[in-house]
Design a protein around this nucleic acid. Structure first.
Lengths: 232, 232
DNA sequence: TCTCATACCGATACACTGTATTCCTCCAAT
DNA sequence: ATTGGAGGAATACAGTGTATCGGTATGAGA
């Protein structure tokens, strides 16, 4: 004869199982919604029905949570299959980094802030280096990878910074610089910045993606020029 | 008949006069000593013998204080005299930015984080654009300036990030990657990162400055190649 | 099956943050 | 002399990252 419900004690409410994956996912969701500054250990924990201190079993500092978040995004950056051409490979990786930053704007705040030594971060670096394998000596390959990455990170950060500024003022970059940004307009009117004025008023504005792509191509051209030397 | 000291009331202790310059100087001093996260409005105000709320007469948000700090450092970056050669001009500006970041490591955290629209920030951009004046159409000049700046910012951020990591572990970059960084060593030992392993073990490590300079030269080469077109 | 040790989770606590609001004091003009 | 008004200081608030502590449920050993 089975015991009735009343006889059986209610199973003690076990705390929700936790792991880094869940924690990072919650943190990323929070950051996607409201930016990096919306990520607090309390809020992350709350999303997981846990107390804040619980997280310290999985990370020992908030920075480490950020590191995990970046590594997670690095997984999105790695393409499924690597193109054969070194140039195409590096281009694709740069573009995928940019796209990831557009999906997760907070990535721009973290990009290049600390070395990415997580598994996916290493895998991305590996992919970049592998693309140049056999085409140059190792030192040249490293310089090439670092140069392209430096460009990409810098360009992405600037793009996101501008995007946020535009969003904050509600103006397109051009209108903002040309007409409505009172401060900039006033400064340009002083005549102390002739080249800058010319650029702002006479320059044609291209969309961010082409701008990124063009600069990237220039850098890749530079790399190509150094690869002509015999490999090691 | 003059009144005695006892008759005259002691002049009321007027609060210390304040201005943005003093505020920014105090904030920069704090940041130089302990990093950006040591800059709090309370501490800045305390250095000036003022209450925290006093600062809000000069800035309306902490971000604005950061903006002012960056603009102040931009003044250090501007060289007294501009070299005639465009390439030398851009090179010098990039190197001066790097040196400023080495003097004020916190600059790396802010570099590229927001558009620099302060007077000195605009002056730096003006100097970069002016260097290319007459050598290319405006659009090419802008692209060139943005590309070089993106590289410089990205490279500087990475350099500072590595520097901090080395300092935190007390190991030189090489030792850290090669032998002592247990995690990296273990990962490399898995064989999943052949190109990276080769780079770490067989690559010769160059000092940060030459690394920066080399990449910069590559990018400048790329720019030079685009300047051959007739100017506008 | 009972007991004990132990791992771990939640609560509490602390020092500190950026910023809004309130209050008071001092100065200038009526 | 009185009154406005400006502006600095104090207070207040809602939040932060993280250390510490106390209880409890779980698994091991008897």
């Amino acid at each position: 004869m089975t015991m009735t419900v009343w006889d059986r004690p209610e199973p003690t409410a076990r705390p929700v199982p936790l792991d880094r994956e869940r924690i990072v996912a919650a943190a990323i969701a929070l950051a996607d919604e409201g930016g990096l500054e919306q990520v607090s250990l309390r809020k992350v924990a709350a999303r997981l029905n846990a107390g804040p201190m619980r997280l310290y079993g999985f990370i020992s500092t908030k920075q480490e949570l950020f590191d995990l978040m970046v590594d997670e995004v690095n997984a999105e950056i790695l393409p499924e299959r690597q193109p054969g051409d070194w140039r195409e490979a590096l281009r694709v990786l740069a573009h995928r980094t940019r796209q990831a930053a557009l999906r997760h704007e907070w990535l721009a705040d973290l990009l290049g802030g600390r070395p990415s030594l997580g598994p996916n971060g290493l895998a991305v670096t590996e992919a970049k280096l592998a693309a140049l394998d056999g085409l140059a000596d190792i030192d040249t390959a490293m310089r090439a990878v670092e140069t392209v990455s430096a460009y990409a990170n810098g360009a992405i950060r600037r793009e996101i910074a501008n995007l946020r500024a535009e969003r904050a003022t509600g103006l397109s970059k051009r209108d903002w610089q040309r007409a409505s940004g009172p401060h900039v307009t006033r400064m340009l009117a002083t005549g102390r910045f002739p080249a800058l004025s010319k650029a702002v008023y006479d320059g044609t504005d291209v969309d961010a993606e082409t701008s990124f792509a063009t600069g990237l191509d220039w850098v890749l051209d530079a790399v190509a020029a150094k690869l002509t030397r015999p490999p090691a």
